[in-house]
């Protein structure tokens, strides 16, 4: 069973991801509403993959990514970005994000990216 952690300030996006994620072998181990909780949850659950929103209050996705990478350099983090965030995406990639997905995205793309990152 692979573990997925969702970090997003919008309950709507978290639900969207939950609904899209339909692989029998992937379990959503946690949903964090901001970067701070996201980092805590990463340490607790050690997920195999994280989806991370970029723009969030309290702690942005980039900061959370850096903290997670500092804790676990092998962490696989997928950034959720929207158009207009190119600069942030570049920083995320530099900081060790595995890849990114552009909102709005379709179910197929989302699953593919997760499978690709997990190598399943």
């Amino acid at each position: 069973m692979k573990k997925l952690l969702i970090v997003d300030d919008e309950a709507f996006m978290r639900l969207t991801i939950r609904n899209m994620m339909n692989h029998y072998d992937i379990e959503i181990v946690g949903e964090a509403a901001n970067g701070v909780i996201g980092v805590e949850m990463y340490k607790e659950f050690r997920p195999d993959v994280v989806t991370m929103d970029i723009t969030m209050p309290e702690m942005t996705g980039i900061e959370a990514l850096k903290k997670i990478k500092a804790f676990d350099p092998q962490a696989k983090v997928i950034m959720l970005s929207s158009l207009g965030e190119e600069g942030m995406v570049i920083e995320a990639i530099r900081s060790g994000a595995k890849t990114f997905i552009v909102k709005p995205f379709k179910e197929k793309f989302f699953n593919q990216i997760i499978y690709d990152v997990l190598g399943i």
């Binding site: 300030d9 919008e10 309950a11 964090a32 509403a33 901001n34 909780i37 209050p57 309290e58 702690m59 942005t60 980039i62 900061e63 965030e85 190119e86 600069g87 942030m88 570049i90 920083e91």
Partner: peptide, 24 residues
């Protein structure tokens, strides 16, 4: 652009945002 966004990032940090953000 990247440093701009980054600056915002830092602005957001450490500041209490009275928002309707769903907390855990």
């Amino acid at each position: 652009d990247s440093s701009n966004r980054d600056r915002v990032t830092r602005d957001f940090e450490g500041k209490e945002i009275h928002s309707a953000v769903t907390q855990q």
